[in-house]
């Protein structure tokens, strides 16, 4: 499923980062790479962008960018 389909408080494991160009590269360089756990902390008041926790830090992406990232939803939360 897509990262943008995860709800607040859900965790996923990144399967593939789509998109192209400089942005995709930057997202990867910031540690959003295959196999990484990503937690959807919250959506902004206007539903866009969203705040994620990855590798222990907080990053914000827009929904349309999150829709380029494929994740596998993790069932249980820790």
């Amino acid at each position: 499923m897509l990262l943008s389909e995860l709800k607040e408080g859900e965790t996923g494991v990144i399967v593939r980062v789509g998109g192209n160009g400089a942005l995709r590269r930057r997202i990867l360089e910031m540690g959003i790479v295959k196999g990484t756990k990503i937690y959807v902390d919250k959506y902004a008041p206007l539903k866009d962008p969203l705040e994620l926790i990855v590798k222990n830090y907080h990053i914000s992406l827009r929904v349309e960018e999150a829709a380029q990232i494929m994740v596998e939803k993790l069932q249980q939360q820790d």
């Binding site: 942005l23 910031m30 962008p49 907080h58 990053i59 914000s60 992406l61 960018e65």
Partner: peptide, 9 residues
Amino acid sequence: APFVMELPP
């Protein structure tokens, strides 16, 4: 432009 920003504590 896309929006990618770190949110510091």
